[in-house]
Computed example of a mutant assay.
Amino acid sequence: MGFDGLCELCGFRWSSHWVLPCGEICHDIREGAPTDDDEAIARSLAGDLDAYEALVTRYSALAHRTAAMLGAGDEAEDVVQEAFVKAYRHLGTFRRDAPFRPWLLRIVANETHNLTRSRGRRAELVVKLTEVDPAKGEVPEDAAVATDRRSRLLEAVRTLPERERQAVVCRYFLQLSEAETAQVLDLPIGTVKSRTFRGLARLREGVARDLI
């Protein structure tokens, strides 16, 4: 898959119709683009690259966020690019009766793991704190307190053991279901539950209860 340009806002290399991590859509969707995953996958398997680009459009922002939060940091862009290429190459192995999103995010998670392992360092959790607009009803003092609480919570999440951190990030930061988290991390649901429980318990021990 080739790339057509570089987004000036987020620096993400884009191909036609991609939705970028900055939230911008660099090109309009072409007429006749598939409206659901099943149709897009079927057409992609038949060799329709535009149909696969529709899938990229649908999931690029989520994939980028997943890579960043699981440890790719400022290399999340490269991880996502490689994940989409690998997903396309292995699309024939995708079970058509299964949801596409967790299957794709599992590839993203694997690519992130490969990256952090090759670096030989602990994965870095990267989260952009949401800026609070005082005009929306929150006074500056409250916004400052909220930002401080988020910072302390994220610092506590960074200290979790990697397995527990991954489960907590998937469940509560990426808002995946237990079943989706199990597929993304390639774990039994029971293991997801236990790791999430232990991770939350550690967070409660490490930060004030009003942060949880």
Rank of each mutant, 00 (worst) to 15 (best):
F3P: 01
D4Q: 06
G5P: 02
C7M: 03
F12E: 14
F12W: 12
F12Q: 04
R13D: 04
R13C: 03
L20D: 00
L20N: 01
L20R: 01
C22R: 01
G23P: 11
H27A: 10
H27R: 11
D28A: 14
G32N: 00
A33I: 03
P34L: 00
P34C: 03
T35F: 08
D36F: 07
D37V: 09
D38G: 07
E39T: 03
A40E: 07
A42L: 10
R43K: 10
G47M: 04
L49K: 05
D50K: 06
E53C: 12
Y59R: 02
S60G: 12
S60N: 13
S60A: 12
S60L: 13
L62E: 14
T66R: 02
A67M: 05
G73I: 02
G73C: 08
E75F: 10
E75G: 14
E77K: 09
E77T: 11
V80H: 01
Q81L: 08
Q81K: 02
E82K: 13
E82G: 04
A83I: 00
F84G: 00
K86F: 09
Y88P: 12
G92C: 12
T93G: 13
R95P: 14
R96A: 15
P99Y: 11
P102Y: 01
L104G: 03
L105Y: 02
R106K: 01
I107W: 00
V108H: 00
V108M: 01
A109F: 04
A109P: 06
N110R: 12
N110W: 09
H113P: 13
N114P: 10
R117H: 10
S118N: 07
R119T: 03
R121C: 13
R122N: 10
R122D: 04
A123R: 13
L125D: 02
L125Y: 07
V126L: 13
K128I: 15
L129G: 08
L129E: 07
D133L: 10
K136M: 13
G137M: 02
E138K: 06
V139Y: 08
V139F: 12
P140F: 02
V145N: 11
T147E: 15
T147P: 14
R150E: 12
L153K: 10
L154R: 15
E155M: 14
R158G: 10
R158F: 11
T159I: 11
T159P: 05
R163K: 15
E164A: 02
R165P: 11
R165I: 04
Q166H: 05
Q166W: 13
A167C: 08
A167M: 05
V169D: 02
V169Q: 03
R171Q: 08
Y172K: 03
Q175K: 13
S177P: 02
A182D: 04
L185Y: 03
L187Y: 05
I189T: 15
I189Y: 07
G190L: 05
V192I: 06
K193T: 14
T196K: 08
T196S: 15
F197D: 15
R198A: 01
A201G: 09
A201Q: 09
R202C: 01
L203I: 10
R204Y: 07
E205M: 11
G206D: 05
V207F: 04
L211W: 06
L211T: 06
